[in-house]
Design a protein around this nucleic acid. Structure first.
Lengths: 341, 341
DNA sequence: TTGAAAGCGTTACCAG
DNA sequence: CTGGTAACGCTTTCAA
C-alpha cells in the first residue's frame, strides 16, 4: 500500500503538482470559498480526486522544503503538575483552531534539560515555543530567540529578555489579594511559605504579600519561610509547629503543592482552620472544597492564560511584534478565612 | 545565519556526507564506542567538526527520506485528567531513554476527534501510537494498524483488536480487591457507582465487584448505579441520599472523579465515613489523605504502565510481535474502611 | 490561471 | 571502511 502523493493526485486530476499544492494549502475564506489563485472548478476537481485517493499530506516533506512545520512546542516544568495539566489542554485546543499541532515536553526545572528539549524541538523545525522558564534557563531560551524562533514566556517572566511574548498572571496582585483578604477578616500575624526557586511568579507573589502587610502597618509581623521541593515536607512540619507556638494567625501559600502540604500537616497535628491557623491557598483543587473546612484560594484564569499564550505566539509567527499580557487573578472564598473572633 | 548541514560538516572534515550520516546516527555501545562501520579516528574527527560548527540534525529531512521520525504519539482521552497527567510523564521519560520524542493530543472521548488526531499524527510520520481508546474508536485505530503503524492500547482494551500491543491493569482484580476489603471488614450491603462509558476498564472493575459479591454470597445486595460525565454530579447526590436511606453499608467508586464526587456529596450532606457509609476510591490523590477520614483506595502502578507501554511499542517498531501485559493493582488502606462495629 | 523545474537535507544503495 | 548519487514529497520561483 503505497503512499498517495501530490503527484498521484495531479496525474489523476490532469493538472500540475503546483495546482494541487495550491489547493491543498488554501484556507477557506468566510464564504467557504478556497482562497487561492486557482480556477474554482479545477480546485473542486482536485479536492475530489484527493479525497477519492485518500491523499494525506506529508508534513515532513513540506517542512523540509518550507522550513515551517505548523507545530508549536510547549515546555512546562512538569507536565504532570496540576497547574500545567489544566493549561496544556487549553493551549492544545486553541492551537488546533489555528491549525497548529502541539508537542509537549518537561524541563524538570533543569536548565540542562530545557536546553536539550529546545534543541530537539528546533531540530524538528517547530514554528514557535511556549515555555515556563526554569531558573537558569535564559541561555537556552536565547538560543531559540537567536535562531529566530518566536518564544512566549508563560507564567514566569524573565525581565531581561526582550524580544519574547509574555503571558503572565498579575502575581503582585495575587499576593496582595490573598493577604488583604486575611487582614480584612481581622488577622494580623500573617506569614508566608514559599520556594527558593528564583522564578518571577513566586517572588512577585511575595512582593504582593509584603506590600499588603506594609500598607496595613503590619510589616513587623511579615515573615516569609523558604523551602525547596525536596525538603518541603519536613520543612512545612517544622514551620507550622513553630508558627502556632509563636501565635501566628494565618498562612498564605503561593502554590498548590505548598497549600496541600500545609493542610496535610495541620491535619496530622490536629490543628483546625481557621481556629488554629487561617489559610489562603493557591490554584484550584478538589481539596479546597473537600477539606474539613473549605479553603480560600487564589484562582488563576487558566483558560485565558493558555489561549492568550497561543494567540501571542501565532501573531509572532505571523511577523507581528511580541506582546506582553498580564491577567488578573481571582479569589475564591472558603471557611478557612472566616472572621477572626 | 545559515543552517549547518551534513554537507558543511563533510566538507570541513574532508569526508563524504555518507560517513557523517553514519556517525551522526551511530549509537554508543556499552563501552561508549561508536557502533558503526567507520574508522574510530575518522568518526572522532567528524564528531568534533560537527560540534564546532554547531551542527543540528534536520529531522524533517531525515523523516522524509527514511519514512521514520523517532517520534511517538500518545493519545489519552484528556491530558488534564489526573490518571494520564501522571502516566504521561513516565511515558515521556522512558521514550526519551529510547531516543524518541513524544507528542500528546487528547481524544476527548470522541471517536471523530480521535480519528482526526490519528490522521494528523500519521501525516507527521510518527513511528507508533500509544492510545487509551474511547468507545467507538476502533475504526480510527484500525486505520493506523492498516497503515502498518504500531499501536499500543493503554489502560483500555478492545478485545476485537489483535495486532496491537496492550498494557492494562488487572481491572477484575482491582474490583475484587476493593470489594473484598469491604467484605473482610464486615460490610455486606456494598454498592458501586460507575460510568456508562462502555470502556473495558470500567466494565471489568464492575465484573470484579460482582464476582466478589457472588463469591461471598452477597450477590442479592449487589447493585451498580450508572451515570455519565455530564450528569455525574447530580446523579451522585441522588444515589448517595437514596443509598443511605436504604441502609447501604459501603460504596466502591472505580475512578478518581467518582470518588471525589462521592466525598464531596457526603461532606455536603454531613455524612461520615465509615460510620454512615464506608468507601473505597480509585487512583491516587492528595484528597484521600486530607479528607476528614482518610480514604482506602485502589492504586494503579502508573510508572510501570507508562514505561511498559513505551517498551512494548518500541519493540513493535523494531519488528517484534505485539505483547499483552496486565499489571496488578494495589490497595492502600485508610480509615474509610475501618471495621464495621 | 496554470505548469516546469529547482531544490530543501537526509538516508539508501551501490561501488570501490 | 569510504564515497558518489539518486531519491523522499513538497513548496517556490519563474515563465507562459
Amino acid at each position: 500500500m503505497k503512499r498517495i502523493t501530490i503527484r498521484d493526485v495531479a496525474r489523476e486530476a490532469n493538472v500540475s503538482v503546483t495546482l494541487v499544492s495550491f489547493v491543498m494549502n488554501a484556507k477557506r475564506d468566510k464564504d467557504g470559498n478556497l482562497d487561492c489563485p486557482v480556477n474554482p472548478e479545477t480546485a473542486k476537481r482536485v479536492l475530489e480526486v484527493a479525497q477519492r485517493l485518500g491523499y494525506q499530506r506529508n508534513f515532513a516533506a513540506a517542512s523540509l522544503r518550507s522550513g515551517r512545520s505548523n507545530t508549536i512546542a510547549v515546555i512546562p516544568n512538569d507536565i504532570s503538575n496540576k497547574f500545567f495539566a489544566g493549561i496544556s489542554r487549553c493551549i492544545e485546543d486553541r492551537a488546533q483552531s489555528f491549525g497548529y499541532t502541539v508537542f509537549f515536553a518537561s524541563s524538570d526545572e533543569q536548565p540542562q534539560k530545557l536546553s536539550e528539549v529546545i534543541d530537539s524541538f528546533m531540530a524538528h523545525n517547530i514554528d514557535g515555543i511556549i515555555v515556563a522558564p526554569c531558573t537558569g534557563g535564559e541561555e537556552a531560551i536565547e538560543k531559540a530567540i537567536n535562531a529566530k524562533v518566536p518564544v512566549v514566556l508563560l507564567d514566569r517572566d524573565i525581565e531581561r529578555l526582550d524580544n519574547v511574548g509574555k503571558v503572565l498572571l498579575d502575581d503582585i496582585e495575587a499576593g496582595k489579594m490573598a493577604t488583604e483578604e486575611l487582614i480584612k477578616k481581622g488577622y494580623k500575624k500573617i506569614e508566608m511559605i514559599s520556594y527558593t526557586l528564583g522564578i518571577s511568579s513566586l517572588s512577585l507573589r511575595e512582593s504582593g504579600y509584603r506590600k499588603a502587610m506594609m500598607d496595613n502597618d503590619l510589616y513587623d509581623n511579615a515573615k516569609i519561610h523558604y523551602t525547596t521541593y525536596g525538603d518541603a515536607e519536613k520543612d512545612t512540619e517544622r514551620i507550622i509547629k513553630d508558627a502556632v507556638n509563636r501565635g501566628v494567625d494565618a498562612i498564605f501559600t503561593p502554590t498548590y503543592s505548598l497549600s496541600a502540604l500545609v493542610l496535610s500537616e495541620m491535619k496530622r497535628l490536629g490543628l483546625k482552620t481557621p481556629g488554629d491557623l487561617a489559610l489562603v491557598g493557591f490554584d484550584e483543587s478538589d481539596i479546597y472544597s473537600l477539606y474539613e473546612t473549605t479553603v480560600t484560594h487564589i484562582v488563576q484564569p487558566l483558560k485565558e492564560l493558555g489561549e492568550k499564550s497561543v494567540e501571542v505566539l501565532v501573531n509572532m509567527i505571523g511577523g507581528k511584534p511580541a506582546e506582553k499580557i498580564v491577567l488578573k487573578p481571582a479569589i475564591k472564598l472558603g471557611g478557612s478565612t472566616d472572621k477572626l473572633k
